[in-house]
Amino acid sequence: MPSLIRTLRSVRRVGLREWWRQMQYIGDAKSGTFVGKDQFGNRYFENVNQYEEVPGRHRWVDYAQHNYNATQVPAEWHSWIQHIRKEPPTEDAIMKSSSPPWQAPWVENLTGTRGAYKPYNTVAPKINAWEPKITPRS
C-alpha cells in the first residue's frame, strides 16, 4: 500500500503527463527537486525525503535522448549520482571553476554505432584466400 500512496503523491506533484512519461521510460513514479542540467540536456533530480525512496535511489537522471545509455552522463554528474561527491556540480566550488585546458571535451561511448572508431589496417594479410589459376583451353 505505501507504493500506491507514493505513486499517487508523485502524480499529484509532477502531473499526469510527466507521470505517464516516467512510467514509459523508467518504469517508476518519481518526484523530487530539480538539481541541474548538463551540456547535453540531461536533467538531474534528487528526492531527500528518506521515507519515499529506496535508500541509494533518491538521485536520478532524466535523459534528453530517447535512446539513452549510461555513457551519456558526464563524469562530474556520474560522481554525484553514485554518491562519490556530496554536492552536485552546479553547487560544487571546484567544479564551477573552469576545466583544465588539457582536458578534452566529453563525448559518449560510440561503440556499436556508426560513429565508432575503426582503425585503418596498413599491414598485408598473413593468410591470403586461394584463387585458382585458370588457363584457357586450346
Rank of each mutant, 00 (worst) to 15 (best):
residue 9 R to A: 00
residue 10 S to V: 04
residue 11 V to S: 09
residue 13 R to H: 03
residue 13 R to Q: 03
residue 15 G to R: 02
residue 16 L to A: 15
residue 17 R to P: 07
residue 19 W to H: 03
residue 21 R to Q: 15
residue 22 Q to A: 08
residue 24 Q to R: 14
residue 26 I to Y: 12
residue 26 I to R: 05
residue 27 G to F: 11
residue 27 G to H: 10
residue 29 A to T: 15
residue 30 K to E: 07
residue 31 S to Q: 05
residue 34 F to C: 00
residue 36 G to W: 02
residue 36 G to A: 02
residue 41 G to Q: 08
residue 42 N to Q: 01
residue 44 Y to W: 04
residue 44 Y to I: 07
residue 44 Y to H: 01
residue 47 N to Q: 12
residue 49 N to K: 06
residue 50 Q to N: 11
residue 53 E to C: 06
residue 54 V to N: 04
residue 56 G to K: 04
residue 56 G to N: 02
residue 56 G to P: 09
residue 58 H to D: 12
residue 61 V to S: 01
residue 65 Q to Y: 13
residue 66 H to A: 13
residue 72 Q to W: 09
residue 73 V to F: 02
residue 77 W to V: 09
residue 78 H to S: 12
residue 80 W to R: 08
residue 80 W to N: 12
residue 80 W to H: 14
residue 80 W to I: 05
residue 82 Q to W: 08
residue 84 I to L: 01
residue 86 K to F: 01
residue 87 E to D: 14
residue 87 E to M: 04
residue 88 P to S: 02
residue 89 P to I: 07
residue 90 T to R: 05
residue 91 E to D: 06
residue 91 E to Q: 05
residue 91 E to C: 04
residue 93 A to W: 05
residue 95 M to P: 12
residue 95 M to H: 13
residue 96 K to H: 02
residue 97 S to Q: 15
residue 101 P to R: 12
residue 104 A to P: 07
residue 104 A to F: 11
residue 106 W to Y: 14
residue 108 E to Y: 05
residue 110 L to Y: 09
residue 114 R to W: 08
residue 123 V to S: 09
residue 124 A to V: 00
residue 126 K to V: 03
residue 127 I to E: 12
residue 127 I to A: 10
residue 128 N to V: 14
residue 131 E to K: 02
residue 134 I to T: 13
residue 137 R to N: 13
residue 138 S to N: 10
